[in-house]
Simulated assay, not measured.
Amino acid sequence: MTKSILVTGASSGIGRAVAELFLGRGWTVGLLARRAEKLAQIAEGQRRAVVLPADVTDPAAVEAAFDRFCTEAGRIDVVFNNAGIFTPPGTIDEIALEDWFAAVNVNLNGMFLCARAGFARMRHQNPRGGRIINNGSIAAHVPRPNSVPYAATKAAITGLTKSLSLDGRAYDIACGQIDIGNARTPMVADLAQRQAEAQPDAPPMDTFDVADAARSVLHMAELPLEANVQFMTVMATKMPYIGRG
């Protein structure tokens, strides 16, 4: 039986890399993001791609997207809960309130809504169960300077992951978290440019191929439900993460 995964934030970056890898491995893949035209590009020529244009912060749109995917795929085996944003940097007193609320709305509320929708369907499908993989960040453990909204919301995802992992046991729903550091994506390219402008004499930011992050998600997703990667960190080897860098 063909396995199925719904990927949020599938139009670019890590989400797109994951979606394309899973399509290449024969999975039925739900492509959820706001930009329908970007999703259509990924789905072109892919018989098992399901385009799901939706805003993860819109509860009704999320529910409708999950309903459609389950109808077309037959069931939902995995949710890669990935959609997120990085707002402009600043100390807490400099951060615009609209940026704080936007980060909370996408990075936390959006991930809650998609986890909620996935959990409900996995709980009641036959055979029941499935897996939710939350895209956290090493920012949950070691934040960048001037990144209160991102660091706070990603730390909250760790709590979401633990609670889902605990509550899902009774329903054969596994939940794990992948913390990805400096995969080469448009978001990381923007961060690298900001760093270079702020510190021209600093060495370039260390990054790694986003395809390797996608393969890490695949490893988590392919496990039988009796096994779970609770937390995984995959990052550029020379990132200043351990110790003082």
Rank of each mutant, 00 (worst) to 15 (best):
T2V: 07
S4D: 08
R16W: 05
L21K: 02
L21V: 14
G24Q: 04
W27V: 01
V29L: 10
L31G: 05
L39I: 10
L39D: 05
A43C: 11
Q46P: 01
R47Q: 15
R47K: 14
V50G: 10
V51E: 07
L52W: 03
A54V: 03
D55A: 12
V56C: 13
A60T: 09
A60E: 15
V62Q: 09
A64L: 02
A65G: 11
D67C: 11
F69Y: 15
F69A: 09
G74Q: 12
G74C: 06
R75C: 15
V79H: 05
F80S: 06
N82L: 11
G84A: 15
F86H: 09
F86C: 03
F86Y: 10
P89S: 14
D93N: 10
E98S: 14
D99K: 01
D99S: 04
F101E: 00
V104D: 00
N105K: 06
N107Y: 06
F112C: 05
F112K: 10
C114D: 07
R116K: 13
R116W: 05
G118H: 01
G118N: 07
F119S: 13
R123H: 13
H124N: 14
H124M: 02
Q125M: 14
P127E: 14
G130Q: 05
R131Q: 13
I133F: 00
N135G: 05
N135A: 10
N135S: 14
I138Y: 02
A139M: 04
H141V: 11
S147Y: 07
P149A: 06
Y150R: 00
K154D: 09
K154A: 01
A156P: 04
L160Y: 09
L160Q: 12
L160N: 01
L164D: 12
S165T: 03
L166C: 07
L166W: 00
R169H: 08
C175D: 12
Q177E: 15
D179W: 01
N182C: 12
R184I: 09
R184T: 04
P186V: 02
M187V: 07
V188Q: 11
A192L: 07
A192H: 15
P203H: 01
D206M: 03
A211F: 04
D212S: 11
V217T: 09
M220E: 03
P224Q: 06
E226D: 14
V229N: 04
T233S: 12
T237F: 02
M239E: 00
Y241H: 03
G243L: 01
